[in-house]
Design a protein around this nucleic acid. Structure first.
Lengths: 253, 253
DNA sequence: TGTACATCAGTGAACGCGCGTTCACTGATGTAC
DNA sequence: TGTACATCAGTGAACGCGCGTTCACTGATGTAC
């Protein structure tokens, strides 16, 4: 995290007391800018995010926001990082509230939290999982860390399922070993997997499950299937199918 | 289809001969506008699509394009309809080239064609399967028909698998019957399913397979998983997992 | 086949608007002594 | 604790730019007789 990101994050966490007027005000304004910008995201989309409009909403002159934000793109980056953190917080909280031995329950909690967050923050969701914003390249050094938090959670769950011998056989799921190894073998060198016994096929199952889950949420948030009679029930169905790819039923335990 | 859409479509299909200069020119300019607009989509995104920029690229004065296009939004609608048609053509062609009895092969052809088309036309793909364009509502009467073409193909494949008794058991896939019926039962009244024997669980399997497939393509086109060592191999893996949800292996035949 | 009139394509100017970013400035808050 | 100086927040004007859309117009193409 660079200074700005750390400050923004600290603004949520650290107690605001014991700070001078200036520092307190700065944090408040920083938070206001993000809040208002997030609101604009909802109505104008990322491409239409405008510093002038944000300033206007804050009753500030447009040049004023440059005391807080380097440029329009930097504001976008902050919104992205913030969205990743907010999503990861929501998902982690839901996941951690479940009995660690209830592997299926952990998957379900994670999936439901993802869906709930996405439906509550559709534009933040679009920002991180929708079409890339034209003329904008997210600086990897600022977004990657926040972006991998959810992935780390998935790896933990997968490893726990493995050591409990609850990961279903890949071959029974239509996942042949050869392409899985070609596709993902190299990825297992990532420090994220250090100390785990995850093999390429298992990782492929995890990726498939995550892809199905994310696809289900994307499809609902962007209404890709048109109007549905019962979207929550459809999600539960797809959630079950995705869970089935990584964790065997408890009865088989 | 309204007049404009029919004309645009006819421009591809009907022979251009036997037309007056005026009509020929109009078709050519119409096609030029769509072509150039598509190019702008690639660099500026849907939100940044500008009639003035399109006109400029065509060496025309900005007001000139209003002879061909009602408004910026209408141009967007045409691009969307065109994208759906182009995708459906590509997918149908690939699907129809496979032996009808090779159900797994048909699914794979369909999936691979979707992926290829998406990678070749990432911005058209984003237009129809990415974040919704802010301040723009696609008029259903113009986009729905084009948008359901791929779905119709999936329904045919699913029905063929059913009558060949090659649809796997839903319960073995983590798809319980109750939520599937709640979620999708009502949908089966759609004329699309008339004359088929598809039941809610099968439809749920089809939706799950499609969601996984589309999720895999979206994730690759938008690089949601970061850089991958071998994206085609990963796709093949996910394709296999998705196929497994709707068609049993040929050996089980 | 030739002419008179109607239709259409494309022009150029104008409308009112919003944008990102820079810059020199004033007045308030903080800090060192 | 009080004063002098340094830092910072926010202002207002300006820069050069692009946008969608309307309108009256000219000149070319098409059509009816």
């Amino acid at each position: 995290m660079d200074t700005a990101a750390r400050a923004a994050h600290a603004a949520h966490a650290a107690p605001a007391a014991k700070l001078g007027k200036r520092a307190r005000n700065r944090r408040a304004v920083e938070a206001d800018i993000l809040r208002v910008a997030r609101g604009h995201l909802a109505t104008s989309g990322a491409a239409g995010l405008s510093l002038r409009a944000v300033a206007r909403d804050l009753g500030m002159v447009s040049s004023g926001v440059y005391r807080y934000v380097e440029s329009r793109d930097e504001l976008l980056t902050r919104l992205i990082v913030d969205s990743y953190l907010s999503l990861a917080d929501a998902v982690r909280a839901a996941h951690d509230a479940v009995d660690p031995d209830d592997l299926g329950g952990r998957w379900d909690a994670l999936g439901r939290a993802l869906r709930t967050w996405a439906l509550e923050h559709p534009h933040d969701f679009a920002l991180i999982y929708g079409s890339p914003v034209p003329d904008y390249d997210a600086p990897a050094e600022r977004t990657t860390e926040a972006g991998t938090a959810v992935m780390a959670l998935l790896v933990t769950l997968l490893e726990d399922a493995r050591s409990a011998r609850r990961v279903p056989e890949a071959s029974g799921l239509g996942i042949p070993e050869a392409p899985a190894t070609a596709a993902l073998g190299a990825l297992l060198a990532d420090p994220m997997f250090a100390g785990t016994g995850i093999d390429p096929a298992m990782l492929a199952q995890g990726v498939a499950a995550w892809t199905l889950l994310l696809g289900a949420v994307t499809s609902e948030v962007f209404s890709q299937l048109g109007p549905l009679p019962d979207a929550p029930a459809l999600f539960e169905t797809l959630l079950g199918a995705s869970r089935h790819l990584v964790v065997t039923d408890a009865s088989a335990n």
